[in-house]
């Protein structure tokens, strides 16, 4: 009896795994979250540490009698072989070296060290900023750009979604401006606002604002009109409809829009920081790349990722608490 039961259970489990649009939780689902990070890391580690994977260069140990080989420099594998072939033909001792990856692909442990180092090493030149100072500057720029954009864009978007005439008055122009890439306004922003933070904040504002108005307006329009009708039959008047029905009804979707838009703002940050006096995390990355300290470059890029990811996770967690009505506590009881 046990055998057929086991046989029946196996295909069921497989069906749960590959069921389209399934919201059933699969045993060990948490593992997938880790795997999604672990797998890229494994690939990176493999390419870095397994000598026969990629490794197009050779790191010279003993240059022997090759005139332009120096210890610890990198040469192409083909060049290394050719020189060694010449040495062998001449009967001289061979040069030695180990397979290596290009300098722009540091190994995980090097980046991990750089992570620590980049926070603890003082900047090379006077006046340059520590990594955490650069980061802090970037965060401030993005905060102000996004906040100013949201303070205007969110109410305007809700009004556009709610009232047809306001949408007619606003959206065509917003749509028109939206197609002008924000960085195109860079020179103008510097001319008007100087070379420090204000033009950068302006670029983030321009990059976010116009998309924001349209996205928020569209989300607002998706509210079930029956809810508004129900509220009207309960005696709600226009301002009450707006503040007691439309805004709370859209709030959850608007909140998620904002999470996505914040990601957008980060993209514009990198562009914005090139404008005027280069600053913030972008400046740090460029500087480190100039010095060819690619482990620091990777560390900085990963820090942006970590920052963005944790912010988003935090906002998701906050969302669950802000919108308890979106949580499924139990299945619906019978009538």
């Amino acid at each position: 009896m046990a055998e057929p039961a086991a046989a029946a259970a196996a295909p069921t489990r497989r069906r749960v795994w590959l069921k389209p649009f399934s919201d059933q939780s699969v045993p060990g689902q948490a593992l997938f979250v880790w795997l999604s990070f672990l797998l890229p890391l494994v690939v990176w580690a493999a390419v870095s540490y397994v000598p026969f994977l990629w490794h197009p260069l050779v790191k010279i140990q003993d240059p022997a009698s090759v005139s332009y080989f120096r210890p610890d420099t990198l040469v192409e594998r083909s060049v290394f072989r050719a020189e060694n072939a010449k040495l062998a033909a001449a009967g001289k001792p061979l040069a030695t070296g180990t397979p290596a990856n290009p300098v722009f692909l540091p190994a995980p442990h090097e980046v991990a060290q750089a992570f620590h180092k980049s926070f603890t090493t003082p900047p090379r030149r006077k006046g340059e900023k520590w990594l955490h100072e650069s980061l802090w500057q970037s965060i401030q720029v993005i905060f102000w750009g996004f906040t100013i954009s949201s303070l205007i864009g969110v109410p305007l978007g809700i009004l556009c979604g709610t009232f047809q005439p306001i949408a007619k008055l606003t959206e065509p122009f917003v749509d028109f401006t939206r197609y002008m890439p924000a960085p195109a306004f860079g020179a103008l922003a510097v001319a008007v606002l100087g070379i420090y933070d204000p033009p950068k904040i302006a670029i983030i504002f321009l990059g976010t604002f116009f998309q924001q108005v349209l996205v928020i307006a569209n989300t607002t329009r998706k509210l079930d009109p029956a809810l508004i009708e129900a509220a009207q039959t309960l005696g709600a008047r226009r301002p009450q409809l707006l503040f007691r029905v439309i805004v709370p009804g859209c709030a959850f979707d608007l909140y998620n829009d904002m999470r996505i838009l914040l990601g957008w703002a980060w993209t514009y940050l990198i562009v914005a920081e090139y404008i005027g006096a280069s600053s913030g995390i972008t400046f740090f990355i460029n500087q480190q790349a100039k010095y060819r300290i690619y482990d620091n470059v990777f560390a900085a890029i990963i820090i942006i990722g970590i920052l963005g990811f944790t912010t988003d996770r935090f906002l998701a967690w906050l969302g669950v608490h802000l919108f308890p009505w979106k949580r499924r506590r139990s299945s619906a009881p019978a009538t």
């Binding site: 029956a226 009708e229 039959t233 309960l234 009505w325």
Partner: peptide, 20 residues
């Protein structure tokens, strides 16, 4: 001529406010 609380309505679709 317009909706008012003197005429209550129950709709076919569920129109409870999901956030309340």
């Amino acid at each position: 001529s317009e909706p008012g609380p003197d005429r209550g309505m129950v709709f076919q679709g569920y129109t409870l406010f999901p956030w309340l």
